[in-house]
Structures are given as structure tokens and as C-alpha cells.
Amino acid sequence: MRLILSYTIRFLLYVLIQVLVLNNIKFLGFINPYVYVVFILTLPMQTPRILLLFIAFLLGLSIDIFSNTLGVHAFATVFLAFIKQPLSNLFAPRDNYESVVPSMKAFGANSFVKYAVLMVLIHHFVLFSIEAFSFQHVGLLLFKILLNTLATLVIILSMERFKSKK
């Protein structure tokens, strides 16, 4: 019960931070880190996949509602949630990984960075592709995906680093 409450609060927190702070950054005109994905990244490994999908849909939809891009974030986040379990299995420690919550401490810095890079890259790729909705300007699209992935990763990894130091 405490767990559900704590995750609900974190959910709301991430949405608020994303919508109120990060969406207003627009550094260099098109850098807009989407840090809310860290909520999906750090959900416990034993979360049922169906629940994961619905949480992701809800999370994406909340971001969408606030940023007037109905469906775009929902699509990308549901996709991310779908591939989360197989991907995290790749990087999780071999012993008793069922009860692990993905974090720098549990995974080890090396594995967690790889995991985060892969997840964020995939999420951003889907997100910006759906936003552009065509491959007419592939160069610009890839540029945007890479820069935003970098920005998101910098924030996510520094947050994780801060947590693991504590």
C-alpha cells in the first residue's frame, strides 16, 4: 500500500516537473528533455506487464494533455513499456533480479547507463517519428532525436547519481 502511494506521488511529481519546468526549457530552440520516462525506467522489475502498459499509457496521456500533443507521448511511452521488461532483463544482475528495482546501485553504473541510453534512445526515436509523421526530413529528425536523447540522459543520469550517493 505504501508502495502504491509512493509511486502515485512520484507519477504526479514527474508529470508536474515535465509539464511545468522541462517543457519550458526549449534550449537552442529544439532541445526539450523528456525526463518523465525515468518513471517507466525505474519501475520495479516484478511489475506485471499489463499494469506497466496501462501506467505508461496514463503517463503519456497526462503529458499529452498538458502539451497539446494528444496521443504522441502515449504512443511512445506504451512502446517503451512494452520493451522495458525484455531490455531490463538484459542488463539486470543475474542473481535474484526478480525483486530488483532498476537503479544505478542495483544494476551497477555501467549496466544502468547502457540500459538508460538504449531505453531513452528508443523512446525518443518513436516519439519524434510520430511527431514528424513522415520521413521527409530524415536528417533533421535524427539530429533532433540525438540531441534530445543526450539532454534527457544528462538529467536522468545526474539524478540517479545523486540518489545512489545518498
Binding site: D64, G71, A74
Partner: peptide
């Protein structure tokens, strides 16, 4: 295979939202 159905369903739902509202 329910997980796949739900995945596809949610993605289709978001795509419908995307196309209808943007």
C-alpha cells in the same frame, strides 16, 4: 498473448488520438 493484444490496442488507441486530434 494477452499482453500483446493490450499493447497493440493501446498503441492503436494512441494513434487514433494522434490522427484525430492533431
Amino acid at each position: 498473448y494477452g499482453i500483446y493484444f493490450i499493447f497493440v490496442l493501446l498503441e492503436i488507441g494512441s494513434l487514433i488520438l494522434v490522427v484525430n486530434n492533431n
